[in-house]
Amino acid sequence: MIERRPWADALAHGLLVVAVLVMLFPLWYVFVASTRSAAEILSPPLPLWPGRHGWENWHATLVDGARRIGGVDALRLLANTTLIALAVAAGKIVISFLSAYALVFFRFPLQRTAFALIFVTLMLPVEVRIMPTYQVMVDLGLINTWTGLTLPLMASATATFLFRQCFATIPDELLEAARIDGAGPWRFLRDVVLPLSATNIAALSVIVFIYGWTQYLWPLLMTSSNDMHTLIIALKKMVSFADADTEWPQVMVITLLAMLPPVAVVIVMQRWFVRGLVDGDK
C-alpha cells in the first residue's frame, strides 16, 4: 500500500507550478515586448506588464507588413510556415508508414538491404545531403515552388525505423486471421495496422510538425521571394546589427507567432504524445 504524504504532494505540485511559470515566462516577456514601443524595448529594464502600443504593433505586423522583408504581412508568413509544417508532417507520416509496412509485412528481394540503406541515412547529417539535393531541385526547376520546399523534407529514416519497430510487435496470428477472412494488404493495413498505430502516429506527428515548423536552412536556400518566406526566415532578416534599424515591436510579434503554434500542438496532443512514446504493448 502506498502511503500518502500531503507535504510531498504539496511540494511536488509547487515544483510543477514553478516549472510551468519558468517555461511560460519567455512567452509572457515576448508578449509584453510586443505591446511596447521600440524606445521602451531599447531602454531596459522592460516592465513586466503590457504597454499601450499593443494594437498598433500587432496591426502593423499582421496587416501592414514589415519593411525589411518587402512589406510582407505576418499573416502571410504564418500561412506559409503552417503550410510547410503540415505538408512535411503529412508526407513524413504517410511515406514512413507505407515504407515500414512494406518492410515488415511483404517479402521481396533485397529486403534487408533496403532497410539497411534506409537506416544508413541516419548517419548522414542534413548538411552533407543538402547541396546534392539542392542541385536536383535546380535541375528540376523547383526553386521558389512549394514542391521544392516540402518534397525533399518528407523522407524520414527515423520515422520509418520507429514504425517498423511498432509493426514488428503485431502478432503473426492477426495476419493469419486476416488472410483467413480474405483481407488483402490494403484492408489489413486499414482495419488492423492503422488502428494499432494510432498513438505512434500521434506522437510522431507532433515531432515532425515541429521539425517542419522550425525549418530554416532549406527554405532559405529554396526561396528568394519574400512572399514565400517563413516566420523563422523573416525573423532573421528583420533583426539588424544596429538596434536602431530593427523594428523590435514587429520582431516580438512575429517571435510570438513563431512560438505559440508548436506550444499549442504539444499541449493539445500531449496525452497522445506520451502514450505513443511509452505504450509499447500492442
Results as ranks from 00 to 15, higher is better:
225 S>H: 07
186 W>K: 12
281 D>S: 13
262 P>R: 11
231 L>Q: 12
251 V>W: 00
131 M>N: 06
52 R>T: 13
6 P>M: 03
34 S>I: 12
99 S>T: 14
33 A>C: 13
84 I>K: 01
27 L>P: 07
161 F>R: 08
111 Q>S: 13
164 R>S: 06
280 G>L: 13
145 T>L: 10
74 A>G: 08
155 A>D: 00
272 W>H: 11
165 Q>P: 03
168 A>Q: 14
11 L>N: 05
260 L>Y: 03
63 V>N: 13
129 R>F: 11
102 A>D: 06
228 M>W: 09
172 D>Y: 07
241 F>E: 13
70 G>H: 03
170 I>D: 01
218 W>I: 02
134 Y>N: 12
71 G>A: 05
230 T>S: 14
118 I>A: 08
235 L>F: 08
182 G>Y: 03
245 D>Q: 15
197 S>F: 00
45 P>W: 03
134 Y>Q: 10
276 G>N: 01
47 P>Q: 03
17 V>I: 15
168 A>V: 10
164 R>L: 08
187 R>L: 14
67 R>G: 04
125 P>V: 04
225 S>W: 10
8 A>K: 14
277 L>W: 04
29 Y>W: 13
231 L>W: 08
113 T>I: 11
155 A>S: 12
107 R>W: 04
106 F>W: 10
25 F>G: 01
67 R>K: 13
42 L>E: 01
16 L>A: 15
32 V>Q: 05
104 V>N: 05
30 V>I: 15
135 Q>L: 15
38 A>L: 07
56 E>C: 02
57 N>A: 02
153 L>N: 10
49 W>N: 00
232 I>G: 01
14 G>W: 07
98 L>Q: 10
27 L>V: 14
254 I>D: 02
188 F>R: 01
207 I>F: 09
182 G>F: 03
194 L>V: 02
37 S>P: 05
64 D>Y: 11
186 W>G: 08
131 M>D: 06
229 H>C: 09
20 V>I: 15
121 T>P: 03
269 M>G: 09
244 A>D: 14
94 V>D: 09
230 T>I: 04
233 I>M: 12
216 Y>M: 09
105 F>V: 02
255 T>S: 15
1 M>E: 04
43 S>N: 14
88 V>K: 01
265 V>D: 07
98 L>I: 10
183 A>F: 04
64 D>T: 15
34 S>G: 07
102 A>K: 08
12 A>L: 15
150 T>W: 00
127 E>I: 09
82 T>K: 02
105 F>K: 08
158 T>F: 14
179 R>P: 04
230 T>D: 11
189 L>F: 12
258 A>T: 05
210 I>S: 04
83 L>D: 03
115 F>S: 09
79 A>K: 09
280 G>A: 05
115 F>I: 02
68 R>T: 10
60 A>N: 14
160 T>C: 14
182 G>P: 00
110 L>E: 11
167 F>E: 01
223 T>E: 03
27 L>I: 15
13 H>Q: 12
72 V>M: 00
246 T>R: 10
22 V>D: 01
143 I>V: 13
76 R>D: 06
161 F>G: 12
58 W>I: 09
151 L>A: 15
192 V>S: 06
145 T>W: 05
248 W>A: 04
184 G>V: 11
184 G>K: 11
204 L>K: 02
